[in-house]
Design a binder for these strands. Structure first.
Length: 677
RNA sequence: GGCGAGAUAGCUCAGAUGGUUAGAGCGCAGGAUUCAUAAUCCUGAGGUCCCGGGUUCAAUUCCCGGUCUCGCUACCA
């Protein structure tokens, strides 16, 4: 077993096309920050790395839509997210970005090394290029005439009419759907990372050597490995990203998934000249904190990249979390269904720890979890205020009241005192063990048990009664209570950094290292403590209602058809319209298409004939319920094979913003085959 | 449909390489208490451990099948 000399903690690079929300925090950044702070207070050599992931197509699309450059988009969100992390107390040693120079150098260099070592497969293909838009076109962005059936509207990947799958180069008279112009053929070369060659190695490394990985991670990896890996392109035809650093690669950039994890390396280089120590010395223990959507990149692809390069170490563990839901619904940036970090920081100033606590206490460690404002409130009021804040408050107030803010002497301990004190060490060990195993929920619970221990100790020893008869005994009791409080500043430090800082100021002490936790004399007799305040305040119902209300408004907006109406499409002429043949028809039979989730096979009486239509509505309608129903159907649409069934037409449906489907039917029953115009 | 993960107290979750009474926190009920932000402390009620089979002396735990939830994936003319 190698010896751990230092730790390299990475947290998934957030994509710089939107603000951060509680899902990001609970899944990745709160755990990674807790872990990093834990290692720090233990005195370990540790660096925590993160930054913005700023390349990739979604950012270019967003930029185009807003009429700005991609750089402007990423500048905006990089600054915003960087600040939000800082304000929230996520202590990265560096929060870098993939659009800066050092990343370009690092990523290029990494690519070149693999290139020179012959680790890539090169494939040159001819692809259509849109000269007006200045980009290569993916197959589905090209239409033209099908060489088999003469259909003029065939797509570059498939002809709807005859169902044959095509290459874009097969099309006669091709058109770009981006600009409408005729694309030209251009040679384009791409590089592939042959993951398949690493299957055996990965199998041993993960399935045999890392059985300790979380079951969700291990299972996902096993699934990928069992299915067999395929070579993956590492380059793309795009003008936003790190240019491919070889000749003949104009207009090509590194594919984001290749580019982004290298961002960890670039960020480390930016941070320290000694970066190689962290990335190449086997004494380094590297941990990737990610969400479950990132498992394949961090457990399969990035390790293959590092292995292929040859001089890098591999991750020791990849503690991926599941997803966090919000008030019973999936968090969604586009639907604005989220608690945004920057908004929380405004609504709850100075209360970072409350959110940190709530997110850690119900983190989606083993399965998706639900965040509700009600739970947030009760975590705060019943746990932070009532257990932790209250214990600290009682201890400090009593010390102030009976001993004028001076740590009293121990006048002799009885069995119960000793048992209570020894319990501190037991709890410390439990917290350590849980954190070492990335079980943050459990660790937090054990840490809170120290405050519970304190409350129980006070309740059992009753200093407010004893003070009438035995002042020395009260001194002992409060000394012990104060030692527990001092221990809390250590054990809770990784979880609640802001509150612990306050607590240290009240106790008039510096940061104490983890090793000291469990000691009974952290505060010496005669040490003066400062006037305390309240560690946490109660969160009122009205505040929770306000937040829930905010979400309800979002929900209403999402549901209301008035908002987010799609813009009208370009005008067509009457002839265009006239070419459509829409009829009323009755559903005679409906069955689910086997082996699919969404597809129903409908048999329709269209008046003209009886025909089969396949429709993607199985998630919304029960086959039995729609039999006999009258619908509107486009009867002259080119037939298309779906899952081997020929679909002869299309049922008209109205789709709400939330995806709900409604049949478009005649308001009164008509005979089948009636023309709709 | 394929693959992965999950299903245990009202809620959020632990847990057992199979073995007498299945645990914790919150919530709830009763009691004690007043130093404390009506906080705390004690006691208690609450569970066919998703369903059906199988293996076994014994299954909630292992195996097989099914149902439901989440994610990835295919299908949505």
């Amino acid at each position: 077993m190698k010896k751990t000399e230092r730790h390299l903690i990475t947290s998934a690079l957030p994509y710089a096309n939107g603000p951060l929300h509680i899902g990001h925090l609970a899944g990745v950044y709160v755990p990674s920050d807790i872990y990093t702070r834990y290692l720090r207070i233990k005195g370990e050599d540790v660096i925590s790395i993160c930054g913005s992931d700023e390349h990739g197509v979604p950012i270019t699309l967003k930029a185009r839509k807003e009429g700005v450059t991609p750089q402007e988009i990423v500048d905006q969100y990089h600054e915003m997210n960087k600040k939000a992390f800082e304000d929230f107390g996520i202590e990265f040693d560096i929060y870098s970005r993939t659009s800066n120079k050092i990343h370009y150098e690092t990523a290029s260099g990494f690519f070149k090394t693999l290139y020179n070592k012959g680790k890539f497969i090169e494939k040159t293909t001819e692809q259509y290029y849109d000269e007006e838009a200045g980009c290569f076109l993916a197959d589905r962005y090209i239409t033209g005439t099908c060489p088999h059936c003469g259909n003029e509207g065939a797509y570059g990947d498939q002809c709807e009419s005859c169902g044959t799958s095509l290459n874009a180069t097969d099309l006669i008279n091709p058109r770009s759907t981006v600009s409408g112009t005729q694309p030209v053929m251009k040679e384009t070369k791409h590089w592939f990372l042959p993951l398949d060659k690493y299957g055996d190695w990965l199998g041993k490394w993960i399935l045999e050597d890392h059985k300790e990985w979380k079951t969700n991670v291990y299972g996902q990896c096993k699934s990928w490995l069992d299915q067999g890996l395929q070579p993956r392109a590492v380059s793309r035809d795009l003008d936003w990203g790190v240019p491919v650093p070889v000749e003949d690669a104009a207009g090509k950039v590194l594919y984001v998934w290749f580019d982004a994890p290298i961002g960890y390396i670039s960020a480390t280089r930016e941070l320290t000249d000694e970066w190689e120590k962290y990335w190449k010395d086997p004494g380094t223990r590297m941990i990737h904190f990610i969400g479950k959507d990132n498992i394949v990149f961090h457990c399969i692809i990035f390790p293959v990249m590092l292995k292929a390069e040859g001089s890098y170490i591999l991750p020791d563990n990849v503690p991926a979390n599941e997803f966090l839901n919000l008030e019973n619904d999936k968090i969604s940036t586009s639907r604005n269904w989220a608690v945004w970090l920057h908004e929380y920081l405004e609504d709850f100033p100075g209360e970072q720890d409350v959110l940190r606590y709530a997110l850690c206490a119900s983190a989606p460690e083993t399965k998706d979890n639900d965040f509700t404002w009600k739970e947030f409130q009760s975590r705060n009021n019943n746990e932070l205020v009532a257990i932790l804040g209250n214990f600290v408050n009682r201890t400090l107030i009593l010390t102030d009241k009976y001993f004028n803010g001076e740590v009293p002497a121990i006048a002799g301990t009885d069995e119960y005192d000793k048992k209570t004190l020894s319990e501190i060490t037991v709890l410390k060990k439990k917290v350590s063990d849980s954190l070492d195993a990335f079980r943050f929920r459990e660790a937090l619970k054990e840490a809170m048990n120290l405050a519970r221990l304190g409350n129980k100790y006070l309740a059992d020893t009753e200093p407010w009664k004893v003070i009438k008869t035995d002042r020395d005994r009260v001194g002992t009791i409060l000394n012990i209570s104060l030692q527990i409080t001092a221990n809390l500043t250590i054990i809770l430090d990784p979880f609640l950094p802001f509150s612990v800082k306050k607590l240290r100021e009240w106790l008039n002490i510096d940061t104490l290292s983890w090793d000291l936790a469990g000691k009974k004399d952290l505060l010496k007799q005669g040490h003066r403590i400062n006037k305390p305040g309240l560690l946490f305040r109660k969160i009122e119902d009205s505040e929770v209602e306000y937040q829930v209300n905010k979400l309800m408004i979002t929900k209403k907006q999402n549901d209301s058809p008035g908002k987010k109406i799609q813009e009208a499409k370009d005008n067509i002429n009457f002839d265009d319209f006239n070419r459509l043949d829409i009829r009323t028809a009755t559903v005679i039979d409906a069955v689910k298409v086997p082996k699919t989730k969404k597809l129903l096979q409908l048999t329709l009486n269209t008046g003209i004939d009886t025909r089969t239509v396949v429709s993607g509505i199985a998630e919304h309608f029960d086959p039995e319920d729609i039999k006999g129903r009258q619908v509107s159907v486009v009867v002259n649409l080119e037939p298309r094979k779906i899952k081997g069934i020929e679909s002869q037409g299309m049922i008209l449906m109205a789709e709400e913003n939330d995806g709900k489907l409604v049949f478009v039917s005649p308001a009164e029953k008509t005979s089948d085959g009636t023309v709709i115009k």
